[in-house]
Design a protein around this nucleic acid. Sequence first.
DNA 1: ACATCATTTAGATGGTTGTCAAATTATCGT
DNA 2: ACGATAATTTGACAACCATCTAAATGATGT
Lengths: 88, 88
Amino acid sequence: MTSTQFHRISKVLADPRRYKILRKIASCDEAACSVLHSRFPISAATLSHHLKELSNAGLIDTRKEGKFMHIKVRRKVWKAYLDELSKL
Amino acid sequence: MTSTQFHRISKVLADPRRYKILRKIASCDEAACSVLHSRFPISAATLSHHLKELSNAGLIDTRKEGKFMHIKVRRKVWKAYLDELSKL
DNA sequence: ACATCATTTAGATGGTTGTCAAATTATCGT
DNA sequence: ACGATAATTTGACAACCATCTAAATGATGT
């Protein structure tokens, strides 16, 4: 894990709502964008923004199926991030 | 660890320089404020600001000895934070 | 009492960030 | 081709944040 990615992940975790979104995604094998939208009291644009931030940080994988977007947590990246933190 | 403290710590870790400061403190048993200041290219006011953020998040303990300030990482809080993250 | 030192606080500044509405894009059903 | 749907992008806005200088505070030495 590069220093750049490490700090990207740290920044992304700074927003409580975004962290909740990440936890929601992590609570199932794969999450649908529309389901996330129905669970969080924010606009579709804001949800899209947060998902982009998570994706840019490398924390999630996304795949499109027709109009629908499916998201899953990249467990290996998450583990690497925790390993890095535990070096403090 | 409360949800509030958890998010405070996450926010505090979002700034790369502040994280470096935390690592520096963690690299020795106890760090002196003046030593930290000599090691980071920021003003004393900015260093003070960052130390206050770290303290408010509960990540460090500070003690005064005359004019000098000494700082150490609260290892138990750090461990609790990592434990929480690993629940994802 | 006064000067010096270490640190903190106050206020200003410029950059960042989460939120929205509106527009846009891509997909699907008719 | 067209309308509806799911999701993204754009631009604006308000709030947040790291940085600075200057001033203030408290401890120390004379």
